[in-house]
């Protein structure tokens, strides 16, 4: 029932509270999760900008996706609604689709160049 009710967007917090009645999350607790999530995002971003191996670069973008996932779950608990958690399920799906595509591209390029160094792929300039 809760899932159905959440489709239009905002789930009634009272319904959820009745069902399981967890204690609301304190702002300070939320801050811990936000710190982890921001750290993951920053590590991903720095890694993307500094590393030159295509697979590592892709893993860094995955890290950034998961950082958003952690933030969404923490917010979901903070606001006592399920929307954030629903969002995460979709993010996982999209991340899987992107991973499939990234690996396909990496295989394609490796066959041609025998290398995964991003700097080698710079035929076009200007």
């Amino acid at each position: 029932m809760n899932m159905l009710a959440s489709i239009p967007g905002v789930l009634d917090a009272a319904v959820l509270a009745q069902a399981s009645a967890p204690a609301p999350m304190a702002q300070s607790q939320l801050a811990h999760y936000m710190f982890i999530s921001a750290a993951l995002f920053a590590i991903g971003l720095i890694g993307f900008l500094t590393r030159r191996n295509l697979i590592i670069m892709f893993l860094c973008t995955e890290l950034m996706f998961q950082a958003a996932g952690v933030a969404l779950i923490a917010f979901s608990r903070f606001h006592m609604n399920m929307t954030g958690q629903t969002f995460v399920i979709f993010i996982l799906t999209v991340a899987a689709a992107e991973a499939a595509m990234a690996l396909a591209l990496v295989v394609l390029l490796f066959r041609r160049r025998e290398s995964l160094n991003a700097e080698e792929f710079s035929e076009m300039k200007g």
Binding site: L54, T61, M64, A67, A68, E98
Partner: peptide, 28 residues
């Protein structure tokens, strides 16, 4: 490959933005 990798970076950035918007308003 250039398009995909920058695209994935862009997607991660706006996704994180969406997560923060949800966090600030409690709704998507």
């Amino acid at each position: 490959v250039k398009y995909f990798f920058l695209g994935a970076l862009g997607a991660a950035v706006f996704l994180y933005g969406f997560a923060m918007l949800y966090g600030a308003t409690g709704s998507t």
